[in-house]
Design a protein around this nucleic acid. Sequence first.
DNA 1: ACATGGATGCTT
DNA 2: AGCATCCATGTC
Length: 196
Amino acid sequence: MISSEKYYLQDSLELAQSLIGKYLVREINNQRICGKIVETEAYLGINDKASHTHNGKKTKRTKILYKKGGLVYVYTIYGIYHCFNIVANRASIPQAVFIRALEPVEGQGIMENNRKSKIRKTEELTNGPAKLCQALKLNKTLYGLDLKQGKILYLEEGEKIDNIVKSPRINVDYAEEDKNKPWRFYEAGNPYVSRS
DNA sequence: ACATGGATGCTT
DNA sequence: AGCATCCATGTC
């Protein structure tokens, strides 16, 4: 279990790359669901036009981003889906790492039950940000949870990934000059990386 | 290529 | 209050 506070106080750009290969573990009813993080995006905060905290915007939804790294930021998108982020950096620097895809490691059967639509290929379990939220039951009840506490939801050391690809982030067309910044990271060739 | 869906934040 | 927007997905 990764419980080091310092780890989460990194800048979101560094944390996003460091998270590739780590295991995200969810415990429900004493059962473990575990996925390897294979795709992330960094959101840099005040000076990032794609960030929910651009220009220091602070609302009920985003206020957790102003706290110290290691907390959970979950929000609803399109009214239907959830997106899971990990707060990065020190308090008052509102950065996050968006988790876009996992490779299933443990509990694939539970993941399949948790997914709402029929799964035809195992890649469809967790190859997108809202899909992995369904598979691991990540929802707003987890908003603000401290991953360092190691309860319900936490990180484990996982695998060392040598081949990390950088690319522009997905679906941030509104972000003007920041939309093409190479702040998306994924493991080269991993079949669970989301379709772009 | 397109319909879906409602919370969120911004404006009145 | 009303309204445009949105860090997707599934099916077309």
